[in-house]
Simulated scan of single mutants.
Amino acid sequence: MTDLYLVRHGETEWSKSGQHTSVTDLELTPHGVEQATSLRSRLDASEFGLILSSPRRRALHTAELAGFSDPEITEDLAEWNYGDYEGLTSQQIRQQHHGWRIWFNGCPGGESADDVRARLTRIVARVRASGVDKAICFGHGHASRVLALCWLDFPIIFGQSFPLQVASVSIMGREKESWAVIRWNS
């Protein structure tokens, strides 16, 4: 069975401020560089048979600093496209749309929850079919949460219960006959 490691990119100015960042291609902050570099002591690239990354600079730079110099880039790991909400904080969005939550309301001008789930389900299928012991995906907050939900075959609204810290490592796998969260936000 393959274990799937999920790594969220290090801190950016917008992750620090809580701004929704999908297509805006931001660099890591100096602290984000430190966070990503510290992953090197916890992850050994030689242990992974499948290494995938979002095409966004923040994910690729995190992978590189963590010791994964040549990940396969896939658009399927890109962050949820926030459309009209790109660059806004949840508080700013809720001033216009009271009670808004991405898991229930989506993003006008961006991707639907079904679209995000479809592309991350492709990642799950690829990882499960790979036959490797360990796979790793360098990605983003919301998309990585959806990836975990696809692994578990949970409804997308459960994403609200799986907050994901910057530069964290989470591991998906199996517990006996069930798909499972092995570790979260480590």
Score class of each variant (00 low, 15 high):
residue 30 P to K: 05
residue 110 G to I: 00
residue 17 S to F: 00
residue 89 T to P: 05
residue 162 F to G: 02
residue 182 I to K: 12
residue 120 L to Q: 11
residue 17 S to D: 13
residue 82 Y to I: 00
residue 102 I to E: 09
residue 11 E to R: 10
residue 37 T to C: 01
residue 68 F to R: 06
residue 130 S to A: 14
residue 124 V to E: 07
residue 10 G to A: 12
residue 103 W to M: 10
residue 91 Q to M: 09
residue 83 G to M: 11
residue 62 T to L: 06
residue 59 A to K: 03
residue 85 Y to H: 14
residue 161 S to T: 07
residue 60 L to E: 13
residue 25 D to N: 14
residue 139 G to W: 09
residue 47 E to M: 05
residue 166 V to M: 11
residue 4 L to G: 01
residue 114 D to N: 12
residue 119 R to F: 06
residue 153 D to A: 14
residue 4 L to F: 13
residue 99 G to I: 11
residue 70 D to Y: 08
residue 18 G to E: 09
residue 16 K to W: 09
residue 1 M to I: 10
residue 80 W to K: 00
residue 28 L to V: 08
residue 112 S to C: 01
residue 49 G to A: 03
residue 149 L to P: 03
residue 28 L to S: 05
residue 102 I to P: 03
residue 98 H to P: 15
residue 19 Q to N: 10
residue 12 T to C: 08
residue 149 L to V: 03
residue 183 R to V: 06
residue 74 T to G: 01
residue 127 V to S: 08
residue 166 V to G: 08
residue 103 W to H: 09
residue 180 A to P: 04
residue 116 V to F: 05
residue 38 S to G: 08
residue 25 D to R: 08
residue 117 R to Q: 07
residue 89 T to V: 07
residue 140 H to K: 09
residue 24 T to W: 07
residue 97 H to P: 01
residue 40 R to Q: 12
residue 160 Q to H: 14
residue 106 G to F: 03
residue 96 Q to E: 15
residue 118 A to Q: 13
residue 41 S to C: 06
residue 51 I to M: 02
residue 114 D to R: 12
residue 165 Q to A: 14
residue 127 V to I: 15
residue 78 A to V: 05
residue 119 R to Q: 08
residue 179 W to C: 10
residue 130 S to V: 08
residue 119 R to H: 11
residue 82 Y to K: 04
residue 43 L to P: 05
residue 131 G to T: 09
residue 155 P to T: 11
residue 71 P to E: 01
residue 124 V to G: 03
residue 34 E to P: 00
residue 53 S to E: 04
residue 153 D to L: 02
residue 50 L to N: 07
